[in-house]
Write a protein that binds this DNA or RNA. Structure first.
Lengths: 325, 325
DNA sequence: AGAATAGTGTCTATGAGACATTATTAT
DNA sequence: ATAATAATGTCTCATAGACACTATTCT
């Protein structure tokens, strides 16, 4: 329930008094902070990128983290807070209302993370959001975040060790993965994966699972593209998100066979592909909210029971679904 | 991020000071309560039921609500709080650890609801959980809840008017739908749907969407059944949750064709069906966590664009997915 | 005996995926 | 010219669903 006071004559329980106090003056009792974090994904140069900000203060000073901030009590809903934080951190004006680069932004709730020890300072409950957007400009300086940048998700450390210990305050950690800040030298092969602050690696991993699954049965891949796009553009989204090569011919036919997925504009691109080929016809997103039939991921070979000690204490899985037939 | 302080030299923003204070002493600033609510579903007499508690105090006094309560700051994770609340409200001892009626309980996060006005008293952020369980006994008296009972979901009002206004304090609303408390008289056709407190109708509706979708690609239907069950038992779960008649023959063959969904025990039931028929073989849940291929819902006829003014201000949808192939 | 049900067999329409092929464009 | 690519065609296999049928058990 929204706020559950105990019954008028509470049965003798271990913590009834605590709850009673909490119900009538939570301000004096519950030191819980509520934040909203955003996993903002976009496609750049055919690779999936996520927006990160560099922490300017302990804990995890110098580490990269998901953009986010406090929910403004009494002022905003969770969705509004997520849109606001994203706008602030990217420096792009306009929430979902104003028509800017955000007009094609897709924002959905991902899950909520509330382990008591996930932030060493206090109990922080974070509501994570997932955002997909077409290629956005680099985040502006001079805004909330000390430093913000798009990172290829392949460069990040998503290891399952859920929440490695916060380093001692004042002892900044190795900020950058392996000299990967601006451009990596051509000799630098396999740079060290960049660690994330707090439990953000897990949140990001959950977000990636979500987006990979959603592409199967929702038309959300179009949220990564500009208003008009080609079928090969759309295929590039699937290939980047799924990290799989897809058969161009079969993909083309399949997309066109799903009612409401894309609608033809009747036009073609101005030029052919960069390496040759005819000009492609352009499409825009249709009105379908669900894909029928779904675009199933190619059956992945089972990893032979390789279970890498997944740290999952409870069975909570911010899991599946808004499917409907 | 977990708790996002502003950068050391904050750019002049409208609410920087507020955020600064919040970061260093949230206790003095953020009057936000965090609760955990549970949508606990079970099957009784072939119908889907949800666990509700009757509110003993305003607001929404006398209305039925989802069981839930405050997250204990610094003491527990969200999953633990959900399991604890469920145990307290049902009066059943034993969280997910002890082996009781709960040993088959499935618990997963559903979504988080944080509109500022959803509770008239203060800003309450509720993390909703979804629980599936085999037929549980009626909730015990003498525990936390004033009154708790399983209700057929078909008797509840799930209308999309998301959060109808809280009635004036001290003016208890019509508690029971239309005389539906214990047993409905055989003459009582179509009793008035029972309204729920707060935005719990929406949370429940989201939970129902989730469970309907999950049955397609996860083996979770078995969570509604005892350890050993028959294929017709399993079919009854699907029929109750989807509210569709399924073809017995095709369902049987399809279930057995999905690797890891069910495993034969080699035994049969002691007796045949209540209305005749041979004894059915028994099975128990297999080790698959995902169904391949999925059991797709029968294609529902499109409701001819009937869009009943869905109140969905933002585009947040605690939506799909932990699928993986 | 009659009715209901468990479980299996068969047939058909549909979609996924493997190729193959043609036309168009960049270098 | 050569290479790469867009788009379409063809073939095969697996699955969903409709329907039929047999065997078993209850009333």
């Amino acid at each position: 329930m929204a706020a559950d006071e105990p019954s008028p004559q509470p049965a003798a329980g271990p913590t009834d008094e605590q709850e009673w106090l909490a119900a009538y003056d939570p301000r004096a009792y519950a030191p819980i902070a509520v934040t909203v974090d955003v996993v903002a994904l976009t496609l750049r140069h055919g690779r999936l990128h996520v927006l990160l900000v560099e922490r300017g203060a302990p804990p995890h000073q110098g580490r990269w983290a998901l953009p986010g901030g406090f929910l403004r009590a009494g002022e905003e809903d969770l969705d509004e807070a997520a849109a606001r934080e994203l706008a602030e951190e990217t420096g792009l004006q306009g929430a979902s209302e104003t028509e800017t680069a955000f007009h094609r932004l897709h924002l959905e709730q991902l899950g909520t993370y509330g382990a008591p020890e996930r932030d060493p300072r206090m109990h922080v409950v974070s509501v994570a959001y997932l955002a997909f957007a077409p290629d956005l400009p680099d985040p502006q300086a001079g805004t909330d975040a000390a430093a913000a940048a798009w990172h290829p998700v392949a460069d990040l450390d998503l290891a399952p060790r859920s929440c490695d210990r916060a380093p001692a305050a004042g002892a900044p950690v190795d900020t950058h993965g392996g000299g990967v800040d601006g451009h990596t030298g051509p000799a630098a092969v396999a740079p060290r994966p960049i660690p994330l602050a707090f439990d953000h690696a897990r949140i990001l991993a959950d977000g990636l699972d979500r987006v990979r699954a959603k592409l199967e049965y929702s038309p959300l891949a179009t949220a990564f593209l500009p208003h008009d796009f080609t079928i090969p553009d759309l295929r590039a989204v699937y290939e980047a998100v799924w990290d799989e090569k897809l058969h161009p011919g079969n993909f083309h036919r399949k997309v066109l066979s799903v009612p409401g997925f894309v609608e033809s504009t009747g036009c073609t691109t101005e030029r052919g592909g960069a390496r040759g080929g005819p000009r492609a016809r352009t499409y825009h997103a249709g009105d379908a909210r669900l894909l029928h039939p779904a675009l199933l991921r190619p059956a992945r070979e089972e990893p032979a029971q390789a279970e890498p000690a997944q740290a999952e204490p409870a069975q909570a899985e911010p899991a599946a679904t808004d499917q409907a037939h």
